[in-house]
Amino acid sequence: MPVVTYIPLAYGDLVLPALLVVMDAALSLVLQLKLEKQLVVATIRMVVQLVLVGYVLTFLFAAVSPLWTALAAFVMVLFASREIVARQKRRLPGVWSYGLGAGCTLLAAGTVTMFALLTQLRPEPWYHPRYALPLLGMILGNTMTGISLGLDVLITGLVRERAAIEACLALGGTRYQAVLPVVRDALRSGFTPIMNSMAAIGLVSLPGMMTGQILAGVEPVDAAKYQLLIMFLIAGGTGLGTLAAVLGGAHLLTDQRHRLRLDRISTGEPA
């Protein structure tokens, strides 16, 4: 094992880099971009959130309690599903607006994280938050993108292709036959970002986790292996989550009598 070395930062070391944000704000003022207020809010949120997360993780790592870890994971899934709902122009009815996104994210990200913890990484104990939470976080972020894109394309497509879907239904097609073209489009959109990032990774962008490990003194090749593991997990999680969400959404927007139920879509604020 090589000795892991990294350069720790004090809070004071961050003052100088923070001046760069002040420079951005000054630019916004001079050029009248009217972004100052947003920039200040975003910066403050970032600082508070990250520092808080640092302390929360410190506590969790010291506790190594399955209960606290599960709670943290649950909160992460909640935020992810809130983000999914916020990205939809048109929403699913009632509890499903949150329920479907949350359920599918939990199912996909949860399954894949467990899979990695139990078969590949095998930390002691397996739910050790030091492994479970960062892993879940990375998979969650990407699964969320796939699900929200997939659902958005699904719902927009069902509305746009209404005449075609109902023509198929009127001629005796089942609801599955009728929505299949739209479902295919939605799945394709959900899968595209992860494929693009797999193709571009390392050339255009050095992924955040790998960068972090390299900064922390890990050998680049070892960091690359870790990154590969993560990418495979993300690809699996996105596929699973998008599939479940799109099929679930298609099921909710049709009914037992094979009707297209666009009346179930709400455009207002979620309940």
Partner: peptide
């Protein structure tokens, strides 16, 4: 619907 078939005024194409 295969026996009682509705034909829309503006037909759709899938």
């Amino acid at each position: 619907r295969k026996q009682v078939t509705y034909l829309a005024a503006e037909p759709g194409w899938w």
